[in-house]
Write a protein that binds this DNA or RNA. Sequence first.
DNA 1: AAAAGTTGATAGTCACTAACTATCAAAATG
DNA 2: CATTTTGATAGTTAGTGACTATCAACTTTT
Lengths: 301, 301
Amino acid sequence: MTINFSLRQWEYAIAVADLLSFRKAAERCHVSQPSLSVQLQQLEGSLGVRLFERDRRRVLVTVAGRPLIERARRMLIDASDLMCAARQAQDPLVGTMRIGVIPTVSPYLLPRATAALRAKFPRLITEWTEDKTLALSHSVEEGTLDAALLALEAKLGDFSHATVAIDPFVLVARPRDPLASSPTPLRADALRNADVLFLDDGHCFREQALAFCTKAKAHELAFRATSLPTLTQMVAGGSGVTLLPQLAVATEVKRAKLRVRAFADPAPHRTLALVWRKQSPMVDALRQIAGAIRDAYPQTG
Amino acid sequence: MTINFSLRQWEYAIAVADLLSFRKAAERCHVSQPSLSVQLQQLEGSLGVRLFERDRRRVLVTVAGRPLIERARRMLIDASDLMCAARQAQDPLVGTMRIGVIPTVSPYLLPRATAALRAKFPRLITEWTEDKTLALSHSVEEGTLDAALLALEAKLGDFSHATVAIDPFVLVARPRDPLASSPTPLRADALRNADVLFLDDGHCFREQALAFCTKAKAHELAFRATSLPTLTQMVAGGSGVTLLPQLAVATEVKRAKLRVRAFADPAPHRTLALVWRKQSPMVDALRQIAGAIRDAYPQTG
DNA sequence: AAAAGTTGATAGTCACTAACTATCAAAATG
DNA sequence: CATTTTGATAGTTAGTGACTATCAACTTTT
């Protein structure tokens, strides 16, 4: 089986499949549209398979082309992994690392983490992207991100990971709330019939907190906050109580006069970890980065 | 991450890594040695990594190069899968299919199987290779074979499969042997203290038969046969009894005057199946081929 | 010890290929 | 109906990868 196509031809094909336009694809590939047209004709010719149905008004991927392009995607990820592995072979901790973070971690950990990384690996540039777990895990899978910092409790694909910290959940309530003065540590069933506020859909912290509270037979209030600051403000405003990750407490609670109570074991918590594609070429560097973040993680005082 | 190497360059690199010689590698790649030399220099240059340590008397793969070449291997398998998938997209059952078979199946099944395949898929050429399970499974993994027909009970890699038949084991003994006249079906413990002959190391049938007989507390005779015909002849010669796969009985036993006894449930058996790499591009065709072999499988009368 | 045969690297040449610009024809848009 | 936008085509050019011839260093043979 002789290979008679080039990686570049498939890059073009994938660009067209993504953008459904020859011109836009050509732009993305930094070549002229005719060059791309010709290359794709040659690719189709050498494969003996028509990949695209081009009407003069629209471009469609053919039925035969679809699975081929998916395979090609994988091949190109392999190729770019290889490229990357070569760079890593020169020095694992020089270059750029694209890492995703979930919104309930980002503001509380990144300031310290980035500082620590800059200090420890001065020649490493970290590019951080904030998004929810689902989007991040897709990005990691398709190679748009090198890794993501998120909670292992969420539904994830088949990743490798290095744990950064265990982040326990705590109860936050106004001082006059009965829960605020109940004995510490708090048992889960203390939440029975309590009115609890949660984050909006899509946040993994919502799912976890909700699961815990549902089991404890608490009530979910109708309002859903879009961020932890909002959530905290709602509690301060008297709408009920909520759970916060310990990580966020120092930042969020000092603004409002609220009481914080820890839970008795087995305490609800999330496991923050750096995750990456199993065959990522940057394992070594990623482990070291996870270690540095772990060391920089704020100690609960 | 821009890719600045070509698939061909890595083909060259892999050839050198395999053969540890530029000239031989060039020969395998059907190019002149200087062409290959230059391409590898460019590859190393664009990667910034030295892949080979070339003394003037020998070539070594560098420590940095080893993992890169392993990655490249995977990439090239992807590429050739893609090539193959394209061909399959034209018509899954046209072309050449390289299939391995184990020696304890090959002579008894291939005549019927190849005839059936020829009849059903006239434009498909099947190339058969006979070898033991371990070698076959390696070949399938690295893409030298498209599939292999073997017993699922053996230790295998992570393959997909389609079952072809269940092949029970039967006891073969001389007429005068006490086992030959014991009640049918035979219970396993009838073998206690019997002298049993087995195949040579490496045959999966040996492992399976041996496991069954060991559990039944039979004795293994010192002689190890290299094939089922030899095994049968030894029994006919009075050296003891043996197990044969049902599949082989019709062919082997008619030559010698031997008695065949089936075992009571749970009868020892092997599950013959066609196996292939999970991401093989030829799934469709392979399933159909397995189906055709299944239909052609000799019915036990 | 000299000759012959290895090895991989280098130099010079040539043909193919993939890029470019300019342009076309058809359809969508205003 | 003019304008814009689509992908395809033609012609040109620069780059690249192949070739042959040759070198320099080392091993083996005589």
